[in-house]
């Protein structure tokens, strides 16, 4: 019963603190929300990049496109034969840099193509036979890709029946370059915002402690434990931080929803868009990390003051 009464006192003291410092509390919550939105956005850009990269490259580093009906390359004199395909496989499998490889037939290529260009008129004007079959190759980390592509092209040239050996990274170089710049920029901004929001949270707590300096002294003098003195400040930080996280979660989910609607209106698919669950996972992880930092901030801020009041 005494515990419940103390908890009730803590809740009332927290409410009083928050009301008295409502402007600082609102600013701190807003700043925390902004920092979390930027941090989550930067993490989501990373997720989105990986997701698109996986989709477009089929999780492969190198693709060997074989000759199809519509191939215009001078290397192709017609559709690749079964013998050529077998010879290609033998050459690829013999390379020590290759960790894995798989064959994508026309049906699989068509499926991926129609997903990627769903709703586009290009799908209506083609069929599966126009798409090249391919070998998808995954390399050992650190492999010199350029040298590998040159060597493999030379080897496959002895067999013929292939259009191009393509380094997927080069194929998506423009996309990765923009995505990486975006990610780095967002992370830098997020780190700055996180620093500012932490400083704001600390300032909020310090102001609150200074405003209630006399209360703390009197509480200490009449036998209130340090834990009980700290409790309202802990609650205050918890409430402000939770409000910031709730705002951030709403903003991130709202942003994803807007992106989804824009994709739908443009006739595209949102299947490649990062899921809400991924966003919420990031927000939850940041919330837990922030709670730990907030708890530490309160303890450090109050430690000196409690030592002074003794």
């Amino acid at each position: 019963m005494r515990g419940i009464r103390r908890l009730w006192w803590t809740v009332r003291a927290t409410s009083r603190n928050l009301w008295n410092g409502r402007v600082s509390a609102a600013l701190a919550a807003g700043s925390i929300a902004l920092a979390l939105v930027l941090t989550t956005a930067s993490l989501l850009i990373g997720n989105q990049t990986d997701r698109l990269s996986d989709h477009w490259t089929g999780r492969a580093d190198i693709t060997v496109y074989l000759c199809a009906r519509a191939s215009a390359s001078p290397r192709c004199g017609g559709v690749t034969t079964d013998e050529q395909i077998a010879a290609h496989e033998a050459l690829i499998a013999a390379r020590p840099e290759v960790t894995s490889y798989w064959f994508e037939n026309q049906a699989d290529a068509w499926k991926a193509f129609t997903e990627r260009f769903s709703g586009s008129s290009i799908v209506e004007n083609l069929d599966a036979s126009a798409l090249p079959e391919s070998y998808r190759i995954k390399l050992v980390d650190g492999t010199d890709r350029e040298a590998f592509v040159d060597d493999l092209e030379e080897q496959l040239g002895t067999v013929g029946g292939f259009e191009i050996v393509q380094d997927q990274r080069n194929a998506l170089a423009g996309f990765f370059s923009v995505a990486n710049r975006l990610r780095t920029g967002a992370l830098a901004l997020a780190a700055l915002q996180a620093g500012i929001s932490l400083a704001l949270l600390t300032h909020l707590l310090r102001s609150s402690v200074t405003r209630r300096n006399k209360d703390i002294r009197v509480m200490s003098l009449v036998g209130t434990s340090h834990r009980q003195i700290r409790a309202p400040f802990m609650f205050e930080a918890l409430v402000v931080y939770t409000a910031g996280v709730a705002l951030a979660a709403g903003a991130v989910l709202g942003g994803l929803n807007v992106a989804r609607n824009m994709l739908e209106r443009a006739g595209g698919t949102d299947a490649l868009l990062v899921a809400d669950a991924a966003a919420l996972r990031h927000v939850a992880a940041l919330y837990l990390a922030g709670l730990a930092v907030g708890w530490l901030t309160v303890r450090l801020t109050l430690r000196t003051r409690l030592r002074e009041t003794n």
Partner: peptide, 10 residues
């Protein structure tokens, strides 16, 4: 009352 309240007096 403040000192009584923080010491859990009902």
């Amino acid at each position: 009352a403040f000192t009584l309240e923080i010491n859990g007096i009902p």
